[in-house]
Simulated scan of single mutants.
Amino acid sequence: MTETVGIKLATPDDAQAILNLLKQLSQESSAILVPHLDTLTVEQEAYSLYDINDSTDSLILLAQYRNHPIGIVTIMELADRPQVGELGVAVLKDFWRNGIGSLLVDEATYWFANYSTLQKLVLDVFDDNVPAIKLYQKYGFVKTGEAKVTDQQGQQRAAVLMEFQPAAADHD
């Protein structure tokens, strides 16, 4: 029997598992940027998840394998740009190249197109992360610019700015 990966909406009950996942992801990649991760409590995360699930401008989905989170996708409205959501995707290194990132991006863009009140969906990705750039292009993200982004180690790195434009999707 083949085991499958499931996608589920993150709920307040997932707060501890999400914090554990984010901590592991931040150790595996300098691209994971979660402000105040070390000081965030389970109660704060649970409250945030409650708020997020009650909104039409934010989303958190988990990829799970054997009932353990192995990936996450978020869409969060940007504080300085109303009606603009930022997409974030991360998958544990042991599960890379298994289509999990694709599943998460596909679900997130579907939610954006069909359920959110956001007008735009954007992201930034380090320019040396070619597999991620190709994944985003496959699902309709187009390059809109370049920027310098500070990574987890405090280093300035070149990043590609992208915006979701469904007509640009290149589904196989």
Rank of each mutant, 00 (worst) to 15 (best):
Q137S: 12
Y136R: 01
I18M: 04
V160W: 02
D94N: 14
Q155F: 12
G140R: 03
S30C: 03
T109M: 02
L9S: 12
N98A: 09
Y50F: 13
D14M: 06
L61S: 05
L62V: 07
N20L: 11
Q156H: 10
D127A: 09
D124A: 00
S29V: 07
D38Q: 14
Q83I: 02
S48L: 14
D38S: 11
Y139R: 02
E43D: 13
A169C: 09
K138T: 10
G71T: 00
R66I: 11
I70C: 06
D124G: 02
K143V: 15
K134S: 14
Y65K: 10
A90G: 08
S30H: 11
E3F: 13
N53F: 09
A46E: 02
Q156P: 05
V73I: 14
G154Q: 04
M162G: 00
S26C: 08
S26N: 08
V91G: 01
K120W: 02
L62D: 01
Y115V: 10
G140V: 00
G71I: 05
W96T: 01
Q137L: 07
Y50P: 00
D172R: 03
L103G: 05
T56E: 14
V84D: 04
A79D: 14
T39S: 15
D51C: 15
R97S: 15
L21F: 08
L22E: 12
L9P: 05
Y65T: 06
I133L: 09
P82Q: 10
F164R: 04
V125N: 06
G71C: 07
T11Y: 04
G88A: 14
S55L: 11
N114Y: 11
A46W: 05
L78G: 00
A167G: 01
A31W: 01
I52R: 08
M162H: 06
Q83N: 13
H171P: 13
F95R: 06
F141H: 03
L104R: 04
I18H: 03
Y139D: 01
V160L: 01
V130M: 11
I70S: 03
G88E: 09
Q83V: 09
T39L: 05
T11L: 14
M1N: 12
E43Y: 05
T39Q: 10
L121F: 06
V125E: 04
Y136P: 04
R81F: 13
T11M: 11
I7N: 04
G145P: 02
I70K: 03
N98K: 15
L118Y: 03
I32W: 05
T4H: 11
D151E: 03
I72Y: 01
L40V: 13
G101Q: 00
Q119F: 08
D54C: 11
D38H: 12
Q119E: 13
S55A: 13
A113Q: 08
P35A: 06
L161W: 06
I18D: 01
D54F: 10
L61Q: 04
I32F: 09
F112K: 05
G71R: 02
